[in-house]
Amino acid sequence: MEVDKGKGEAEETRKVAEADRDTVTLKSSDGKLFEVSKEAAARLSTVLAGMIAGGSIDDNGTDLKQIGSEALENVVDYCNKHANSIPSAALISSSISFNTAPFKEPEEWERKFVDRLSHDALFDLVEAANFLGMERLLDVTCHKISEMMKGKSPDQIREVFNIKNDYTKEELEEIRQELAWAFYDD
């Protein structure tokens, strides 16, 4: 009896805490749960912002069936790091400069954040960021992939990204001829 009563009270306090707690719980396609700052999630993801505003956040874990646990962990990690490391004033000024520059340069910590990822993890994160409407994270990941392409020959690109060259010799020669007629910088 004592035990049951205690459990009931605990349940009660947990529910109260969840109602105004400052995190949301996300569930990956393989059923793993991740906690993320509610403020950061709403600020960085248009999709999560919509779900929070619309009350469709499940306290037992909001299902994100399209996102695997590794990618979701990176998303959550990114949100939490963002919440901790960027003062809001800096965020505001960087969003203003976005209007003048075509792409925002990633911050130092964002660079490090994507640098440590494997190719597969990076591409999964691009997909997750796209699905969740995370413009800033998309920017950072796309920047990283474009960096991986810079200064590489088509052969090297195929090698880095493991792309099959399904051109015929004749087709390749034709495109090379096209390119050869203009002055190109190396």
Binding site: P102, C142, S146, M149, P154, I175, L179, Y184
Partner: peptide, 22 residues
């Protein structure tokens, strides 16, 4: 997204990437 990535490259090297695959 693919387009977004390619648009970050300067036009000249981007043209050359037409050689990667169809």
């Amino acid at each position: 997204i693919f387009m977004d990535i390619l648009r970050r490259l300067p036009p000249t090297p981007r043209r050359r990437l037409r050689l990667v695959c169809p």
